[in-house]
Design a binder for these strands. Structure first.
Lengths: 139, 139
DNA sequence: CTTGACCCTGTAGTTGCTACAGGGTGCAGT
DNA sequence: ACTGCACCCTGTAGCAACTACAGGGTCAAG
């Protein structure tokens, strides 16, 4: 029922991916060059739809292109242990955690700076002062 | 004591900014073109050091270049109210909060996917399955 | 007077797209 | 048959915010 020939626009709608992005994925080798119609239009099938969905989902979860490349290549070797997959995912989780920590630290610093603002004139603005913490030992 | 002529390397060390980055800031107009020595070396003073410190601190806090441009230009109008400064900072805090929320949602999803991994073969890997949530209503 | 650390300009690469420009294709309506 | 119009094609350039050369010049120490 769903299995027909899909244009790039169909794929785009089905996966909420811009047409240009799909062509970009093809250019960088994340998607294989598909068959073409008589009029030189790209013709996709369900296999490509699945692969692109996988890619998009992984991107949404913050995986980088190279990680996705690795995941895709591993996912084809069905008999091997999925330890390598697990390792990639865990590494990514660690990266996310470290980004989260950074962002939370940043947030709290920013928040404390903003809280000090009495909204007077800029000459005595606490935010500006907090941003320019130069050692005033000289002059 | 500290007030002499600073080379770009001095500025680089003092602010933990790469030399190339300083030149980049000059190119995009965030730093004014400095004086030059006889040998065409950039010659900075404490003013530039202060300005660059400000920029780096703001970057560390996640402000974008355009926001920093606005902060710098506002910080020169000392008599005006610092409401505009406050608004930029609050906007940035809101952006950070929204990024944090996204990242935390992502983290928990990633975590739950990883937790399902029994580390069997890839053919039945839960991580791969979770990444390819294609509607299987057809075929 | 040479060696090495520094500086200069200019350009290209990074990541993951996005946005044209300048065309071709396919189909519906008249 | 013709005319729109939506869609497709390739190729290139742009975004943020740097980073990394290449291919040269300058300067102080030994």
């Amino acid at each position: 029922m769903n299995s027909g020939i899909l244009t790039i626009g169909d794929l785009s709608k089905a996966t909420s991916t811009k047409v240009e992005t799909i062509r970009y994925y093809e250019r960088i080798g994340l998607l294989a060059p598909p068959a073409r119609t008589a009029g030189n239009y790209r013709a996709y099938g369900d296999t490509e739809l699945g692969r692109l969905s996988f890619i998009r989902r992984a991107r949404d979860l913050g995986f980088g292109i190279d990680q996705i490349r690795a995941l895709l290549s591993l996912s084809e070797k069905k008999k091997r242990s999925c330890k390598a997959i697990d390792a990639i995912a865990r590494q990514h989780l660690a990266d996310v955690d470290s980004k989260l920590a950074d962002l939370m630290a940043l947030r709290s610093e920013l928040d404390s700076i903003i809280r000090q603002c009495g909204c007077g004139t800029i000459a005595n603005c606490r935010i500006i002062e907090a941003l320019a913490p130069i050692d005033a030992s000289h002059r």
